[in-house]
Simulated assay, not measured.
Amino acid sequence: MLSLAKNANLLVMFLLELGVLASTCYWGFTVGQNWPVKLLLGLGAPALFIVVWAVFGAANGAQIPLTGLARVALEVLWFGGGAAALVMAGRLTPGVVFAAVYVVNAALRVLWKQ
């Protein structure tokens, strides 16, 4: 049973990662004043987040994998950025829920040494 819960928690982590990309994309397309700016922000913000995650945060494929407090800081900034993007796009409740799910997920990953 615990194994199933641990696997579900890893699935939630993956879905949160996708959620960050969707949140930043949504933010970009809602705050832009005209279509060129919307495209730049809506596609550029997730692209920037992808690059940062690929270089520093990807589980087994990071170019410069971070550990310890550096990893904690990266995750807080990365997932916090997703939550902040929702809030800045005018979606306060989804942003708060996103942040809360991340906190629970991170706490369980620490508890279960994932």
Rank of each mutant, 00 (worst) to 15 (best):
L66K: 11
V76F: 13
F79Y: 15
W78Q: 03
Y26A: 05
L48T: 12
Q63F: 12
A45E: 04
W78S: 01
P46V: 08
K6R: 15
L11E: 05
L10Y: 06
L11V: 15
A47S: 14
K6I: 08
G28H: 04
Q33G: 12
A73T: 14
N60L: 02
N7V: 07
A54Y: 04
S3T: 14
R109E: 13
L41W: 09
A59V: 10
V96D: 00
G95Q: 04
L15K: 03
A47G: 12
F14R: 13
V103A: 15
I64F: 13
G57E: 02
G44D: 12
M1S: 15
L66E: 01
L43D: 02
L18G: 15
G90N: 05
S3C: 05
A89F: 07
Y102W: 15
I64E: 04
T93N: 06
V87P: 07
F14H: 06
T30H: 07
C25E: 08
V20A: 03
L111S: 13
M13Y: 09
L43Y: 04
V87T: 02
W112F: 10
G90F: 05
L69Y: 06
V52W: 09
R71V: 01
M13T: 14
M13C: 06
Y26N: 00
P65W: 03
V87W: 03
A45R: 01
A8S: 13
T67D: 08
L2I: 11
A70M: 11
S3Y: 10
L11I: 15
W112T: 06
K38E: 09
T93F: 08
P46T: 10
L11M: 14
V12L: 07
A73I: 15
A58Q: 14
L48Y: 01
M13N: 10
W78T: 04
G44L: 09
L40I: 13
L86G: 05
F49C: 07
G82W: 02
A73Y: 06
V20W: 01
G82H: 05
P65R: 08
N7T: 08
I64H: 15
R91D: 15
E75L: 09
L39E: 07
A54H: 07
P65F: 06
G32F: 08
P36Y: 00
M13G: 11
R109H: 15
A100I: 10
G80N: 08
W35I: 11
A107F: 07
L43P: 00
V96R: 01
K38G: 05
A106K: 12
Y26S: 01
